[in-house]
């Protein structure tokens, strides 16, 4: 009878856990309360794991250089881009964007890019922070 995992288990008892810690060790009674405390310097948050260089995050859009050619809409697999024909511009729905970055490649004016921002969660998929218009 062999139980090869037992030595590993016993040695892990004396090592640091492998988990990346949450910003707060435990769920605080109120998140805003915790953030206030952090701002006042009373509490500390665990630093986040750094995002890698190539990470594809939230869309950025330069409305001024956009010429309204709508090529990005043609390649967007997720219907995340909507045309605004009246002004010949486009609008991005971040909640539906799948961050493939195909639109940034086809854009003739390079007015699109994917930023490293990845905290895009919201309870409402049409939250104003999740609609990129400019």
């Amino acid at each position: 009878m062999t139980f090869p995992i037992v030595p590993d288990l016993l040695s892990s008892l004396f090592k640091k856990p492998n988990t990346n810690p949450f910003p707060a060790p435990q769920l605080p009674p109120t998140v805003t309360g915790l953030l206030d405390e952090v701002n006042q310097g009373k509490a500390e948050l665990n630093p986040p794991v750094p995002a890698p260089e190539r990470l594809r995050g939230k869309m950025t859009y330069n409305r001024e250089t956009c010429i309204g050619c709508n090529l990005c809409i043609k390649v967007c697999p997720a219907h995340a881009i909507e045309a605004i024909p009246a002004v010949k511009k486009v609008r991005f729905y971040v909640s539906q964007c799948i961050q493939c970055g195909q639109c940034t490649e086809i854009c003739p004016k390079q007015c699109l890019a994917l930023s490293g921002e990845f905290l895009n969660a919201s309870h409402d998929r049409y939250d104003r922070s999740l609609i990129v218009e400019r």
């Binding site: 890698p52 260089e53 190539r54 990470l55 594809r56 961050q99 493939c100 195909q102």
Partner: peptide, 12 residues
């Protein structure tokens, strides 16, 4: 994989 492609799944 995230380092190479930019995402952990759905590498595009």
């Amino acid at each position: 994989v995230e380092y190479l492609t930019g995402n952990r799944v759905h590498y595009a």
